[in-house]
Design a protein around this nucleic acid. Sequence first.
RNA 1: UCCUCGGUAGCUCAAUCGGCAGAGCGGCCGGCUGUUAACCGGUUGGUUGUAGGUUCAAGUCCUGCCCGAGGAGCCA
Length: 445
Amino acid sequence: MSRSIRIADIASYPGETVTIHGWLTLKTGKGQLQFLRVRDGTGIIQAVVFKKDVPADVFEAARRLTQESSLVVTGVVRADDRSPGMPGGYELGVTDLQLVQIAGEYPITPKEHGPEFLLDNRHLWIRSSRQWAILRVRATVVRAIREWLDQNGFINMDTPILTPAAGEGTTTLFEVDYFGEPTYLAQTGQLYNEANIYSFGRVYCFGPTFRAEKSKTRRHLTEFWMVEPEAAFCDLDQLMEIEEQFVSYIVQRTLDERRSELAMLERDIRALERVTPPFYRISYDDALHRLAEVQARTEDPELKELLSVEWGSDFGSPHETELTAQFDKPVFVYGFPTQCKAFYMEPWPGRPEVSKSVDLLAPEGYGEITGGSERISDPDLLEQRIREHQLPPEAFSWYVDLRQYGSVPHSGFGLGVERTVAWITGTKHIRETVPYPRMINRVYP
RNA sequence: UCCUCGGUAGCUCAAUCGGCAGAGCGGCCGGCUGUUAACCGGUUGGUUGUAGGUUCAAGUCCUGCCCGAGGAGCCA
């Protein structure tokens, strides 16, 4: 009876006979030699079955294995530079092999496939090595998020997913029949966070959020995960300091724990190693000047058209791409026009047309990963803004109420998990950064 | 919602001017002692997205619809 081990720990057992429980990801047979690539969830290892080393029925079983067949394989661990895997450098000289199940014809072959086919087979696609690596990075990112916040005085305070018709306008909300009354899936926990800081000081909510936008781009999901920290006695400058510490920690923690996964994904590690405080800070006005320069320089008429932007408009994806191309790590853009941002943002001192808002743009064209602001603390101004935005006052009465009892300057931001994982892993489309993506026209599987 | 491109074997694709619907991979059978998406030989595999139209003849041309991809807007 040999010891059962995990492939991740293979380097601890050179020369020993061990047993691995897993699945066949790939097989290349060569007469009396069968190379089995076996996956157990923790890693991948090559198991070599040589006809003369095993009983005839074991060799026959190895020969008959199909892709994704489940098996229990026993063999001697030996170092071998030729052996692929994760971690590589070791292989298993098979002495025994038990079949658990011969898999039927597996649809995902080691060749190229299109996105529609892969998404229809997402329940199988997650077994592929690239998806495996991305989702392991995601798990680390999620844990790093909680670690940093928990270690820096933020307390986790869950906010509701079923919400009344509040939010920031109802057009992008999914409606749910709540015992005959319409309610909506949350698109933010921020307003509740603002209530919670008066009891806990610094809080965060972390969960799925929902946007019914008919977006069809590589940066959008209808269901995505967002962490939203909120802090009392915190102005915009202090918020940016929190954000850069937070994001840097997430990236560095991922480099510590998931370096080999990032290498599998062929991510440029050095670009991530640069992600340390301080980040660049530019104002909206400065950003506008930079975009005008790019626009004047470019000879691409299409780009020229896409980059035209008036003072007062929010940036689109082309603007973010051009801006972030000028920096080698994340850049804050602060001080957006009041008119293009949400109703609750504090005005800039002496410039009411500008808000104390800040977006964090990831480099390499990944765009906005956080959006935040200092919130209005004055009850009269807040009520005025609610009127200006024609929001139903009764739905926001509790929110205004917060400003009656010890109102303080406070700030917060939201960070999109999928966009962050896409940036860190170098994944083009965020649909690969969540196990089961929800997009317009896709809720299966 | 708008713009562009696409839909042919399980998968990825080809099919010239409208003239017999093909290849690679996968599967199956056989061969091979170091394969890395192995290789070699054989074999299997089709309601060309859908409904109409034009034509002696439509994968190919025309019209509607459905589905997908990339982008815009909006956003994290």
